[in-house]
Amino acid sequence: MVHKALKIARVMLSVYYAYMVEYRAELVFWVLSGTFPLILMGLWVEAAQGDRFDLTPTELVQYFLAVFLVRQFTVVWVIWEFEREVVEGRLSSYLLQPVDPAWRHFFSHVSERFARLPFAFLLVGLFLLLYPYAAWLPRLDNLLLGLLATVLAFCLRFLMQYTFALAAFWIERASALEQFWFLPYTFLSGMVAPLALFPDAVRAAVLWTPFPYLIYFPASLLINRPDHVAQGFAAMVLWSALFWGLNRWLWRQGLRQYSGMGA
């Protein structure tokens, strides 16, 4: 059982890795299109020169570099692919296979991470050349926890988006849901500013949502500023469990609804 699962995972990973590497140039552009944190880095570094904010310019450079990296590894696009599969009826052929189609999407995302890795590190290297004083090494425990948090953040984000994707069984444009969801994700996840710079009331409220754990939490671990570690991991696990349950329920309901349009 376990042996078979491992084999399937290995095969899927290598197949999708080959796909991804085929479009290397495209991949570079996807990496470059994630420059939003780097733009905000510029703004915050300039703003922090006057010592008016809680963080120093160096810490801000580190923070936004970490945000850039975490974001690179948690990019998810499953909703657009799933929506197309349902609308065009291509899902039918995947349903015949003895593997839940979710795993295909999951491994295609995972293998893309490996293909993306070298470019992302290249860009970080370039930035460290520009800001040599900001170079830092995460402490070993923080590094391990930060990596774990990044992996969990990716899983949670994938799970959330896949759950919204299941709405495609009922509505034609499920991706509109993701467009909505993306707004709080952009502004509350810590992508525009570390949570330490939010007004206290907003921060307290935001910590109850899943958003800060997707970017702020792993990024702050990576720059050696851990913030309520146990609580953060607990929140991630809870949100994942919630979305997992919702996801499986919607999947069962949706399959009954699915009529294989267009196939």
Partner: peptide, 29 residues
């Protein structure tokens, strides 16, 4: 290059900088 959807995405990402007055950025930016 045929498949360059995302080149325009790169441009769009960079244009985000226009949300703020240019004076808000460091000199290199």
């Amino acid at each position: 290059f045929v498949k360059i959807y995302n080149v325009t995405e790169v441009l769009r990402g960079l244009l985000e900088a226009g949300r703020f007055p240019i004076a808000a950025y460091p000199a290199a930016y």
